[in-house]
Nucleic acid binder design. Structure first.
Lengths: 348, 348
DNA sequence: AACATCTTGGAAAACGTTGCCCACTCACTC
DNA sequence: GAGTGAGTGGGCAACGTTTTCCAAGATGTT
């Protein structure tokens, strides 16, 4: 009976490299970090030793003194494909650097968010990117005071962290204008009900709802403003649409605050025996992957997630270099992707 | 001009706790790790000091000597909602432990997988869960020799790592039997073409294709076996369906090896002017979130991702405790979810 | 030739935690 | 009363890097 697993061989350390290259560990460290004060000859020698031994720096040990070359990304919901776009933008932008991105999953709710952010700080990460956090401002400021931080998808400016977001106000107007141009007047909206006063003005859902109202007024449709307050979930869309369809005068178009909400709305509409888009138009927000699937073909607002991610990465790298730099806010303009769930309203 | 950011206060360390509690750092460390040799009195005193100071252990420093309490999960494609199910199973199972899950994103291709696995090893993670890796067996064995590892969604047994997978062979049979029961005989399959001989027998896609053929033979439909070899992508589904629809005798049902493949197939079918399921039935695999959306309503094989994740977590924790334990293989049975894309074939 | 400055390389001290080992106390036994 | 052994608590040396110095040599300047 031999043991099935061989004892793992001791890992190559910087000392091994230094011995092999006949130099000091300081010299090796300098080469690793591209630090000042190494001759080209020395650099080559060390590089070769590193390659020959297959040396890889121990990140934990690095973290004790310097950087860990790790960037933590907090993702509230791994299922939303829009977040995947952001992540692609991030990783593309960081691919050529020495930084490694690690994701903290399953952050639904404030407690979970706090757990993940703390875990990332405990692991001495060099920077954090928080995507659509719902934590309090106080918590965000506290995190940002501890480690360089970029907040994505949340409005409101802080002196402690940079932020990148889509212009949700303009995005909502894109939808309203598109529907109004098609001839709709009874355009309703399903929003995510914001319970927390603290976040009220900062969350995208609130901004979208405000943008919807403002755009309706701008089109002279102030009297037609009609909002169902539920949640940004499939269920929320289902319930919201049910509410709206029960109105004395039914809306001819529904602007769902998110694509997943639109999916629920489509359910309720089909159950009510109505056709999309002949009887009623539906538009979403996020332009998630499934919105493009042919059987769905959902008109939606595209947030240029890739660019959002790239900007977040850029800002974070900047801030890691200079923590005193004044905070920046980046707003990106969304675009409308029209597909087959929106059409002129039915003749009266 | 005041500086906008206050200098981050020095972090509380184990030394601070020890001083505050009037004990040694060793004692604090023992309490932290629930190690043997601390009296209840001592434990309470230390716990209180920890709470009063808001101390949190530095994971990097821990990694130098002991564990990092971090588990790395490699996810090849964050967009596949099936992986999200696995992740939920994982995190649920690990929620009550001290372990934190961190995800390595963007691992499409062998190089990227190697980069991520190395990055996780460099960060002294206590264990790794690799989901549907496409790396060579040699690489997997090497990783598993270095750190406790569980491989998910890949068949083939190793002595170095545990594995958890769906029984893809049985899953394929579920689809074939369902379609055959409906009266179909010309049941075609779109597979992911396996280029790598090394992985041929281990990858789910290959097993599904084999299962399809075996099930067809079992139903006496050996002569009707018809496979389009493309890739597990939307494009692959589109191209595969185009090939199949161009056959002299058209199939009446298409078993797509993955839901996303089915999406592409639906595109091609609609373009050919055919209706689903009246003219042709379509089934997928994975039961991804969008399969359930009403406009899609795709018949699909459900893999019990939650259980897969929970099992992977359990096996990993076991292995962290005992690295010499013989490797285990877990196979879970899939189930079929019938929806509206499958129906009896059209009358001849 | 004397002096200042820059460049290059290394020695040694952190960083925060854990693991090993030893010392002490206290009860119990011979 | 000496010996035994379990139960507690602490001292100290790792762990693998980076950082801060300092020294020696090379180069330039008067």
């Amino acid at each position: 009976m031999d043991t099935p697993v061989a004892p793992p061989p001791r890992r190559i350390t910087i000392v091994d490299v230094a011995q092999h290259a006949q130099v000091s560990t300081t010299a090796v460290s300098k080469v690793l970090r591209n630090a000042y004060g190494v001759s080209p000859k020395m650099r080559d020698r060390v590089r070769q030793a590193i390659a020959e031994l297959g040396y890889r720096p121990n990140a934990a040990a690095r973290g004790m003194r310097g950087q860990t070359y790790t960037i933590g990304v907090m993702l509230p919901n791994i299922r939303n494909p829009f977040f995947a776009e952001i992540l692609d933008g991030l990783t593309d932008h960081l691919a050529d650097t020495d930084y490694q991105v690690l994701l903290g999953p399953g952050c639904n709710g404030r407690e979970a968010e706090a757990k993940v952010t703390h875990a990332m700080i405990d692991r001495s990460m060099d920077g954090l990117i928080l995507i659509a956090p719902i934590s309090t401002r106080a918590h965000l400021d506290h995190v940002a005071a501890t480690v360089p931080t970029v907040v994505v998808g949340r409005h409101g400016r802080s002196r402690a962290y940079d932020s990148v977001a889509d212009d949700d106000f303009a995005g909502a107007a894109l939808v309203v204008d598109h529907l109004a141009d098609l001839g709709h007047t009874r355009i309703a909206h399903i929003e995510h009900h914001e319970t927390d006063r603290d976040c009220l003005a900062e969350m995208p859902n609130a901004i979208r709802a405000a943008g919807y109202q403002q755009a309706m007024r701008a089109r002279g449709l102030a009297d037609e403003i009609d909002i169902a307050s539920t949640t940004y979930t499939q269920d929320g869309g289902y319930l919201g649409a049910q509410q709206l369809l029960a109105r004395p005068v039914r809306p001819t178009a529904i602007f769902a605050g998110a694509d997943i909400v639109a999916m629920g709305a489509l359910d309720a509409i089909a159950e009510a025996g109505l056709r999309v888009p002949e009887d009623i138009s539906v538009a979403g927000y996020d332009n998630t992957t499934f919105a493009a699937f042919r059987p769905i073909s959902l008109t939606s607002v595209d947030q240029a997630g890739h660019q959002i991610g790239a900007n977040a990465a850029r800002l974070l790298l900047d801030r890691i270099v200079d923590r005193q730099r004044p905070a920046a806010q980046v707003r990106l303009s969304p675009t409308l992707v029209t597909r087959h769930t929106t059409a002129p309203p039915p003749a009266p």
